[in-house]
Design a protein around this nucleic acid. Structure first.
Length: 495
RNA sequence: GCGGGCAUAACUCAGUUGGUAGAGUGUCAGCUUCCCAAGCUGAAUGUCGCGGGUUCGAAUCCCGUUGCCCGCUCCA
C-alpha cells in the first residue's frame, strides 16, 4: 500500500508542477476536496469529454441536452432525493464507530426489536405514536422492512432519546453509548433571488440525470426520435459528501457524463447488457489497460431506491478499486414519479404496437473527473533506461493535452525559422508546443512527461530536402516525413 | 465524522539544544550542443499553511484553525 500511495503522491506532484491540476483556492489555504484544472488539465479534461460526446451522441439514436444546474425544488421531491438523500447518522461515544441509522436498525435482531418497542410502548405518552408502535409490533415478523423504516423514523422523533438509550453498539457492545442521530443532507442548498427566505430555497443538482428526465417529452417531440433512443448530457453536479478523499476521486463538485436510454420495458435487459459492454469498450479503446478495469455488479439488496439492476465499472486506483462509471436500469421509476408530481403525461405511444407505456431507462453515468484521474494514473510510467529514468505519460493521442511538439534541433542556422513556419501551419489545427530551449534530449523528456505523442524536429537535412523527423513518444523511434505532409500525417494519427 | 501523521522556494526535502532560512531538481538569461535528462556561466523566487500565545527573540515551544496523506466510517 505504501508503494501505491507513492504513485498517487507522484501524480499529484506532477499535476501541480506541469499544470494539470491545482488545489482550489490554494493561496487561501485551499478548499477541502475542490480542485482546479490547469492549462494541460483543462485541455485533457476537454478531450475526455469530447471523446465521450462523440462516442455517445454522434449516432442516430442519441440526442444531447445541456440542462440548467438549478432546477425546480419539486424535481428533487419527485426524484426521491429530498427523502432519500438524507442519511441519519449515529456515533458510538465509546468506540467512536459511526453507523447509518437504517443500517444499524437492520442489524438488530427481531427479539431485541420487539423488546425495545414494547418498552417504548409503556413509556410513551403520545397516543398517535403508541398506536403506531402497537401496529408495528403486530407485523414485526411478516413485514420486517416496514418495521425497520418505522424504527428509523423514530430516531427523528421526540422518543429518540429513549430509543437510543436502549441500543447496544454492535462493535464494542456498550449499551446506551450512542449520540443523538444527526442528519446529513447531501444536497447543497442555496437561494433563488437575493433574499434568504425559506420559500426560495433551491438545490444545486446532485445528479445531471433529472435534467434529462424532465426534458424527455421536449426532446422526443423536437427530435422525432422513436423508442429506443437516448439523451446525453455532460455537466457539473454537487454532493455535500461527508468525506472527500483521494485527490480527484471523491469531491463535492464533480462533472458527470450521463446518457439515459429510453426503452420498451420488455427490452430493458437487452439494452442494459448492450450499454454495459459499450461503456467498458469506451475506456479500453482510449487506451486504458483492461487488467485495471472490472465490473462490479450490485447485489439486489444494495440497490438504490430507483434501480432494478446496477453495475459499476471500476478502475484499479493506487488506493484500491473505485467506481468510474455506473450503469443502472432505472426502470420507469423516474418518469413515473415525474408524471405523478408534475401531473404531466410522459407516456410514450408506440405506433407499431399501438401500446402506450412509460419507457424504462437504462442509465450510463460516468464521472468526468474520475475518468480523468483514471486515465492519468493508467498512463503514468517511470521507465528504467539503464541508469536513467524516463517519466512518461502513455496517454492515448486523442486524450493527450498537447498533440505535437515542434523543436529546432539547435537554436540557429535557420532551424528556428523553419520550425516557426511549421508552427504557423499546424497551430490552428492542433494543440502544439514550440520549444527551442535546452538540449534536444531534455526537450523530448519534457514532452514525454506531459504525454505529448509526437515530436517534430527540424535538423540540417530539413534545410536540404524539406523533411523533418517525427519521434513517437512510446517507442522513441523516429521517421522522416516531408514537412509539407505534416498536417495529413498528424490528422491520420489522431483520427 | 473519529483516530494518527504531515504542512519550509514551482517540485522533493534539509534546517542540530528557540537567535528572522538552505540543497537538489525545475524555471529564466546567455554559452555550448546535429537526436534522447543530470556540460559551463549567471539570475530570480519564500513574511517557513493561516491566526493567536509564551519569549528580549519562534520555521523551531503551546493553543486554535485550514489543507493534504494514512486507518476506520461513509459513498443515496
Amino acid at each position: 500500500m505504501n508503494g501505491k500511495n507513492d504513485l498517487l503522491e507522484k501524480i499529484i506532484s506532477l499535476s501541480k508542477r506541469k499544470g494539470f491540476v491545482y488545489q482550489s483556492s490554494e493561496i487561501y489555504g485551499g478548499l477541502n476536496g475542490c480542485y482546479d484544472y490547469g492549462p494541460l488539465g483543462s485541455e485533457m479534461l476537454r478531450n475526455i469529454k469530447d471523446e465521450w460526446w462523440r462516442f455517445m451522441t454522434y449516432r442516430d439514436d442519441v440526442e444531447g441536452v445541456d440542462a440548467s444546474i438549478l432546477m425546480s425544488p419539486e424535481v428533487w421531491v419527485a426524484s426521491g432525493h429530498v427523502e432519500n438523500f438524507t442519511d441519519p447518522m449515529i456515533d458510538c461515544k465509546n468506540c467512536k464507530s459511526r453507523f447509518r441509522v437504517d443500517y444499524l436498525v437492520d442489524q438488530i435482531a427481531v427479539k431485541k426489536k420487539t423488546k425495545i418497542l414494547e418498552a417504548l410502548l409503556s413509556s410513551v405518552e403520545d397516543e398517535g405514536i403508541k398506536k403506531a408502535i402497537d401496529a408495528n409490533l403486530k407485523k414485526i415478523a411478516e413485514k420486517p422492512d416496514e418495521v425497520n423504516d418505522f424504527i428509523t423514523e423514530l430516531f427523528d422523533s421526540g422518543e429518540a432519546a429513549k430509543l437510543i438509550a436502549a441500543l447496544n453498539c454492535p462493535v464494542c457492545g456498550t449499551p446506551g453509548s450512542f449520540t443523538p442521530a444527526r442528519k446529513f443532507n447531501l444536497m447543497f442548498k442555496t437561494f433563488l433571488g437575493s433574499v434568504e427566505e425559506t420559500g426560495s430555497a433551491i438545490f444545486l443538482r446532485p445528479e445531471t440525470a433529472q435534467g434529462i428526465f424532465v426534458n424527455f417529452g421536449n426532446v422526443q417531440g423536437a427530435s422525432r426520435q422513436k423508442i429506443p433512443f437516448g439523451i446525453a448530457q455532460i455537466g457539473k453536479a454537487f454532493r455535500n459528501e461527508i468525506n472527500t478523499r483521494y485527490f480527484l476521486f471523491r469531491t463535492r463538485e464533480f462533472e458527470q457524463m450521463e446518457m439515459q436510454y429510453f426503452v420498451k420495458p420488455s427490452d430493458d435487459k437487452k439494452y442494459y447488457d448492450y450499454w454495459k459492454e459499450e461503456r467498458m469498450n469506451w475506456f479500453t479503446k482510449l487506451g486504458m489497460k483492461s487488467e485495471n478495469l472490472r465490473y462490479h455488479d450490485h447485489p439486489a439488496n444494495k440497490l438504490a431506491h430507483y434501480a432494478k439492476e446496477a453495475t459499476d465499472i471500476e478502475y484499479k486506483f493506487p488506493f484500491g478499486w473505485g467506481e468510474i462509471e455506473g450503469i443502472h436500469n432505472r426502470t420507469d421509476f423516474d418518469l413515473g414519479r415525474h408524471e405523478q408530481y408534475s401531473k404531466k403525461g410522459l407516456k410514450y405511444f408506440d405506433e407499431e404496437t399501438k401500446e402506450k407505456y412509460l419507457p424504462y431507462i437504462i442509465e450510463t453515468s460516468a464521472g468526468a473527473s474520475r475518468s480523468f484521474l483514471a486515465f492519468l494514473v493508467d498512463a503514468y510510467d517511470e521507465e528504467d533506461l539503464g541508469g536513467d529514468t524516463r517519466t512518461v505519460l502513455h496517454l492515448h493521442p486523442r486524450l493527450a493535452p498537447v498533440k505535437a511538439a515542434i523543436l529546432p534541433l539547435v537554436n540557429k542556422d535557420g532551424m528556428p525559422e523553419f520550425a516557426k513556419k511549421i508552427e504557423d501551419e499546424l497551430r490552428p489545427k492542433f494543440k502544439i508546443f514550440y520549444d527551442d530551449k535546452a538540449a534536444i534530449g531534455r526537450r523530448y523528456r519534457r514532452m514525454d512527461e506531459i504525454g505529448t505523442p509526437y515530436a517534430i524536429t527540424v535538423d540540417t537535412q530539413t534545410l536540404e530536402d524539406n523533411t523533418v523527423t517525427v519521434r513517437e513518444r512510446d517507442s522513441m523511434e523516429q521517421i522522416r516525413v516531408d514537412a509539407s505532409k505534416l498536417t495529413g500525417y498528424l490528422t491520420e494519427k489522431l483520427s
